[in-house]
Design a protein around this nucleic acid. Structure first.
Length: 814
DNA sequence: TGATGCTGCGTTTTT
DNA sequence: CGCAGCATCA
């Protein structure tokens, strides 16, 4: 094995690195990065040759091993950065790895061109050899929405009843086939028959053909077309096999069949492939991940070494014991025993509550208590099984004025406004982009509806020309009525004008011009719904992100894969997310609500996947618990409203699978009694209120910060940034002890009101600046009317969201 | 083209 | 029960 004896190893492969001094330095650097590793990690890092599977339990330093391994390869001179293929699933993971490697290796090493997501690397390869698979190098990448629209057209053309056979189901099937590496001719007959009376595979084939005509690929194709390329063009495959001296794979348990095939093709030759994963964290079976890939590793890569990382550096003893004991109930696993040197710490708590409302209240209470003890909200997370559970928490936190952020939801580039904007830009860049053309032809509304589009389609199809070309012709005829004809002519002229400017102006300016002159920005400016402001902000963000690219072309080539919305972690707030999106994260305190049969494990997982489903749910529970560093708090409700009707629920079987010695069953602090239930807390909290002085760590200050940041979107931040300093805290004029908490909240919230500028003076008083009948705007609920004022708490009847009680600093005048 | 009413559905999500 | 997506009507 390559012990730190790099001289002998190095001289073989490496171009002479320099004199003795350089080597001495390299040796010192190397010692530094290897020093902190435990023996297993070190083994995983230093076993460079041959296939290696690193079974890395939660919190055992998986990313560290991967990044150190790269650093090691580089510093031994075994490969140059461009000769290492390192794949991840998410852009985030790729980014983090890049950062950590560059920190370790030093800034002198140029970036690693082949470190990225499966898809990003797939695109890169595909663009180089596009012609070989029937594409042009500037092919577009379709998102799910485009995909479905395309399939809709195919179904229509085939006279298939779209209600019986929805396009999105077909899209799902095709995705699934691609995940499994199946081309249309390889789809099992039974499955192909299941859609549209046996026409499934035929539609899949038609779809692929259509994609080629449009010079487009979907996400699945990024891998499928690569595989096809590698299989058909041995010389191309050979070229890459030779290039990649080392292959590293993150989250191997999440790979699907296509990814596996892709990896095997690329990694076979050199055989230096290192996969890191944890079968106990495989939670994406439902979207094609094959746990089998990891279970079969030794078989697939003969001579593989397996390294287990079992030392957990994240969680305290009780938490780790609970998680380990729980996951031991799974049968289909390779098996690991996590251990820690940490103190036992706090036991995992299990709290029964009456319903979801009480659950949210109890969690809110505990968070406020943690907050009072000085814990940062950033270190607290609520992990739910299904996103509908989030609402209750959001409602409660809005009422409390407790800052939170929801992680997940639609991705940045999936948002309508971003896709619209991109469609405009795509069209300016290449007028033949029919999907883009269709998308924006009537956005904003210009009176070009279905009839016009139909007409364009007919012409385009008949003459086999793009819609844009068809439009040019039609505008010169009498076919369309005067109004749409003029509108269409205008649109064409504008598009042409923009395209003409492409060479002359910087691409960001083009983008601004396009969004402005198309009336698109204006459309959202006029929109009065709650999220319009956010959409405009997203558009700005889009243009900002364009600056990183050289030109429009370059931007468009990458954007579909790289765009991510940043989550603003600079604000101190509780995170709310699903268990799935929590994978890979960690928090001091983790709340795990909703541990009830039917919800968690989810009924559907049980019904549809049987024991495999149950095991995946259990892995999800394991993921949830292992996110916690110091506190894991589980809740279950006795009653839950499911689809409108209340039903009583049984505690999750997972609760019975927790080890009694490491769990503490607690009473709900919210209390079953409902309204009066704050009993024990009122007075002490009230007293505490005065303790919240004006230092910068108080909840109030943090909320002011969060408030300020949230507004940081083109209103008037400069003026009020300073004014948002903590001004006045807890008010002592509330006599009811039970109200103490609210009073404190109110006081804490006073300061952000200065944002309104003219309210600086008033804002220090106890009376809300809002009155009955005021029209207000709220970030989440949109527009509404104040119906009742109680100090700083407003009851507002929202136009869309109904009646809510909200702390006044969360709203502004409409 | 917008508004209204009806039907159907209701877990998790990256690229 | 509540919402989204669709169809139909004014």
């Amino acid at each position: 094995m390559a012990e730190p004896d790099k001289l002998s190893v190095g001289t073989e492969h490496q171009p002479q690195p320099g004199g003795i001094a350089a080597r001495a330095m390299a040796a010192r650097v190397e010692r530094a990065y290897l020093a902190g590793l435990n023996p297993e990690q070190r083994l995983a890092v230093e076993t460079l040759h041959g296939p290696v599977l690193v079974l890395a339990g939660a919190g055992t330093g998986k990313t560290r091993v991967l990044t150190t391994r790269i650093a090691h390869i580089l510093s031994l001179g075994q490969a140059r950065p461009a000769e290492i293929l390192a794949v991840t699933f998410t852009n985030k993971a790729a980014r983090e790895m890049k950062e950590r490697v560059s920190v370790m290796v030093g800034e002198t090493v140029e970036g690693m061109p082949w470190l990225g997501t499966f898809h990003a690397i797939g695109v890169k390869i595909l663009r180089r050899h596009a012609e070989m698979v029937g594409l042009k190098p500037d092919f577009t990448i379709l998102d799910t929405d485009d995909q479905i629209r395309l399939l809709k057209q195919l179904l229509e053309a085939d006279n298939i009843d779209e209600k019986r056979w929805p396009a999105r189901i077909l899209a799902g099937l095709i995705d699934g086939w691609k995940n499994r590496g199946l081309t249309p001719d390889k789809v099992p007959a039974g499955e192909a028959a299941s859609f549209a009376a046996g026409r499934g595979a035929q539609l899949y084939a038609a779809y692929q053909e259509r994609l080629k005509v449009l010079n487009a690929v979907d996400f699945g194709d990024l891998l499928m077309e690569c595989i096809k390329l590698f299989r058909e063009r041995g010389e191309v495959l050979g070229q890459y096999q030779q290039r990649f001296k080392f292959v590293l794979v993150d989250e191997y348990q999440d790979t699907n069949v296509a990814q596996y095939l892709w990896l095997r093709l690329l990694g076979q030759q050199g055989g230096n492939i290192c996969c890191v994963g944890d079968d106990d964290q495989s939670i994406y079976g439902w979207r094609g991940a094959e746990v089998d890939n990891i279970l079969r590793f030794e078989h697939d890569f003969p001579g593989a070494k397996i390294v287990r990382l079992e030392r957990n550096y994240r969680s305290t003893g009780h938490i780790l014991a609970a998680a380990s004991h729980l996951i031991a109930h799974n049968e289909g696993r390779l098996g690991k025993t996590l251990r820690t040197d940490e103190v036992p710490g706090e036991k995992v708590t299990v709290t029964g509550v009456w319903d979801s409302e009480e659950e949210a209240r109890a969690v809110g209470e505990e968070i406020e208590e943690l907050q009072r003890e000085g814990h940062a909200l950033n270190e607290i997370a609520i992990l739910v099984r299904a996103s509908f559970q989030m609402r209750e928490f959001e409602d409660r936190f809005v009422t409390l004025g407790l800052p939170y952020r929801v992680i997940g939801g639609p991705r940045f580039y999936e948002r309508a406004e971003i896709r619209d904007a991109l469609a405009y830009l795509r069209l300016v860049n290449s007028p033949a982009d029919d999907l883009a053309f269709e998308r924006i032809i009537n956005v904003p509304k210009r009176g070009l509806g279905d009839a016009t589009l139909q007409c364009l389609h007919d012409h385009a199809r008949a003459r086999r020309i793009p819609l844009f070309e068809a439009a040019r012709i039609i505008v010169e005829t009498e076919e369309l009525k005067a109004k749409p004809r003029t509108a269409l002519r205008d649109l064409l002229a504008t598009l042409t004008r923009w395209s003409a400017q492409l060479a002359a102006l910087p691409h960001t300016e083009i983008a601004e011009m396009v969004l402005d002159e198309s009336g698109y920005t204006e459309m959202w400016q006029r929109d009065r719904s709650a999220d319009a402001a956010g959409r405009l902000e997203n558009l700005k963000e889009l243009i900002r992100s364009m600056e990183e690219f050289e030109n429009l072309q370059g931007f468009l080539e990458h954007i579909a894969l790289v765009m991510e919305r940043d989550q603003g972690e600079d604000v101190d707030a509780v995170s709310i997310m699903t268990l799935h999106s929590a994978k890979g994260l960690e928090f001091d305190t983790v709340f795990l609500p909703g541990w009830e049969e039917g919800l968690f494990p989810h009924q559907r997982a049980l019904d549809e996947q049987g024991r495999a489903g149950l095991e995946e749910e259990r892995r999800l529970a394991h993921v949830g618990l292992t996110r916690a560093r110091r506190r894991a708090k589980i809740f279950f409700a006795t009653t839950r409203r499911i689809r409108g009707t209340w039903s009583s629920t049984a505690p999750s079987r997972f609760l019975d699978e927790l080890p009694v010695a490491h769990v503490e069953v607690t009473e709900s602090k919210g209390g079953f009694a409902g309204m009066g239930g704050y009993g024990g807390y009122g007075p002490s909290r009230f007293d505490d209120a005065t303790a919240f002085g004006s230092n910068y760590t108080t909840p109030g200050w943090q909320r002011a910060q969060s408030r300020r940041d949230r507004r940081n979107d083109g209103f008037d931040e400069a003026a009020d940034a300073d004014a948002a300093a903590p001004r006045q805290r807890g008010r002592a004029d509330r006599s009811a002890a039970a109200r103490g908490r609210e009073a404190r909240q109110g006081g804490a919230f006073r300061s952000p009101l200065t944002i309104e500028g003219e309210l600086v003076a008033k804002s220090t008083g106890t009376v809300s600046p809002f009155g009955r009948g005021d029209r207000v705007f709220h970030q989440k609920f949109g527009y509404g009317e104040v119906t009742f004022v109680d100090g700083n708490k407003l009851t507002i009847l929202f136009d869309k969201a109904g009646e809510k009680r909200v702390v006044d600093s969360f709203v502004q005048r409409a």
